[in-house]
Design a protein around this nucleic acid. Structure first.
Lengths: 158, 158
DNA sequence: TATTGTTATACTCTATAACTATA
DNA sequence: TATAGTTATAGAGTATAACAATA
């Protein structure tokens, strides 16, 4: 086994060259990957996956959604969403039913079980965020979050 | 074709639910992915790949490296590095030669052509960073970078 | 003809295991 | 036996194309 030692979320690699550490894009890519790995592991432990939480969160926003609007809200391809919904439906967390007004559409809704599961998964996300941000002060966490929102074009201005 | 519209780096998705935008880990994952995509496209245009730059940057640090030290510096698995080095060697950007003192080891060095290529690829990375950080003021860019280094455990304290 | 959901396929990045040649 | 590099394989995540049903 030749893999490098597993890194905690606060340690993205042994010691990359300064030239790479100077690049914000490089840091974002490394940290983003670490977040993904951590999320996969944490959700895997409870028989779920990160995108399960994302979809449940979209459905919890209010009105029933079609698969297309869910996919667009998450920036997912619609074909990828199919499998995610299959898994959620099998666990009875969501329901699909044809839209009578347009029978091409599936209206997807959260079940009561799904609402409870969402609360559970929300706690997982909160733990991940807390661990991720542990090296920062509370003020620094807010600053970082606001800057990331701005870079993502998802701040209030948009 | 059902894919959502391609997002600029400053736009990670249509409009994810607030619950997800509240998570710093979620933002990092989305932005990290966007950085990866952008880097892949930009390097692809010149017949290279993001990890080519990473390896060249490691080799440019000074002493000749073995494949193991390169992999560790980048947090890559050694088996994955093999293919990357094959590509770099084919383009004559790096050289592998057996270590006479321990014939299991390959000493990897940057060629003069590799040094020139590194300069070219460095410009690509700088462009990517500039585009990524366009929504931020210069001061905000520095702040973001410092905070990311801290979260990654790669700041001065480490 | 266009759109929704679906299936099938392929590609990137990474991890794992097994192999070889050296030590 | 242990290590460096290599090969082969598999998995997650995503993108693309083509298809059936419906509009």
């Amino acid at each position: 086994m030749h893999a490098p030692p597993k890194s905690p979320i606060t340690r993205v690699g042994a010691r990359p060259p300064k030239e790479l550490l100077d690049s914000t894009a490089f840091l974002l890519k490394r940290l983003g990957w670490a977040c993904k790995d951590r999320a996969m592991a944490a959700f895997g432990e409870v028989g779920a996956a990160p995108y399960h939480h994302s979809v449940l969160a979209v459905l919890n926003e209010g009105a029933p959604e079609t698969q297309a609007t869910i996919a667009d809200a998450l920036g997912l391809d619609r074909s990828y969403l199919v499998g995610v919904l299959d898994e959620l439906e099998e666990r009875r967390l969501v329901e699909r039913k044809r839209d009578a007004a347009d029978r091409r559409r599936q209206l997807v809704t959260l079940t009561p079980v799904g609402k409870k599961e969402l609360a559970k998964q929300r706690a997982i996300v909160e733990t991940l965020d807390t661990e991720l941000l542990a090296p920062l002060s509370l003020e620094e966490r807010d600053t970082l979050h606001a800057l990331l929102l701005k870079v993502a074009g998802q701040d209030d201005g948009e």
